[in-house]
Design a protein around this nucleic acid. Structure first.
Lengths: 196, 196
DNA sequence: ACCTGAACACCGTTCAAGT
DNA sequence: ACCTGAACACCGTTCAAGT
């Protein structure tokens, strides 16, 4: 987990992990079936930090924002959660809770299931797609990529791209992180309101 | 693109592509800066299929569903779009259009920008996270993973997991694809409605 | 302009063997 | 039970060299 947090999930390899533990790569296979199993374990560990029995599970808003809180502490790990959550106990417990709360709001079994997938996916999107936060560990490369993006946006002719030039600052980095995330939460929860 | 469509974007390597073209891996570097550049090119090609000037750009619903239509033809490629869209001309044009339409609906520059990122991210989520559609190319492995998921869901005790057992069928595969996607679109567009 | 050959520094994983 | 050594089949990428 530390490895992923520090250098990004992309650079988390069995070989690097083994080196960190002063052990050969093959030694890990005694503790983990394969790399997928390792990643599943990380997701389990992450999602188990959400305390469904306590305040986190009070209502839809508090549970989604609890997930957000946990993800923000491990932004690089966030991206591996969506496809793996249901492969872990903690993910299944979370889904049970969220589907249940959606049912209580009057959604059908199918709608509640679809909305639960949407909610988890979208709250992760808030973290992984936060403007200005590229998932690149190397700080000099990061800066270079952001500078490149700044240049592309600044080079847009305002006549052809009036809206992007007006909103350019936001795409390069949110003005305020807390506002960004609370807005994001509002958008997500808004999506669960009945349409008709 | 064919390589990614057939075997998944994970198995798209410069070396495999080179072999397919009967050429050494190094020959590709004359046409592409590196692998990132290749993937950016794929996203450009994909997103340029959305015809912003025509009917696709009429309103928010038609543009988002146009993106969905394109993504559904290349489901495995969908996952690389979010982080790369703004690195391509087509992605920038798409963003300009979407932000513009959101501004017309009365959203502020910052809100419109955040919502545009959300919309593109979430419509991609509909494709990449479609229940029953694991992004695994190998058909026998696919079946095995789905069978495993079926087993986990069926083994849940109904007393402890009443909601997941009720919605289990959906998590294993959507009852009707068209309903799934039109519901998904409705959820997304619902999120853009004013909150207050 | 376009391609090749050889090499480097990485991956995940299997298999047999050690203590 | 836990770890090692050697090997296999892959990666992306650099550098020098060919036509």
């Amino acid at each position: 987990m530390g490895l992923a947090d520090d250098d990004g999930v992309a650079s988390l390899s069995l070989r690097r992990l083994a080196a960190l533990l002063h052990v050969t790569p093959m030694a890990l296979y005694r503790h983990v079936k394969d790399k997928d199993d390792l990643l599943d374990g990380l997701v389990q560990r992450l999602l188990s930090e959400v305390d469904l029995a306590g305040d986190d599970g009070a209502d839809l808003r508090s549970i989604v924002s609890a997930v957000l809180r946990v993800l923000r502490q491990h932004p690089t790990l966030a991206e591996i959660v969506p496809t793996r959550s249901m492969r872990t106990r903690a993910g299944i417990d979370l889904a049970e809770k969220v589907v249940g709360l959606l049912r209580e709001e009057g959604h059908s079994p199918v709608d509640a299931a679809q909305l639960s997938i949407f909610l988890l996916d979208a709250v992760i999107g808030l973290v992984t797609r936060q403007p200005g936060e590229l998932a690149v560990a190397d700080p000099t490369l990061r800066r270079a990529m952001l500078a490149e993006k700044r240049k592309t946006l600044q080079d847009l002719e305002p006549e052809a791209y009036p809206n992007l030039t007006t909103s350019a600052e936001f795409f390069l980095g949110v003005p305020d992180e807390e506002t960004y995330f609370s807005n994001g939460l509002a958008i997500l929860l808004n999506a669960t309101r009945p349409i008709r």
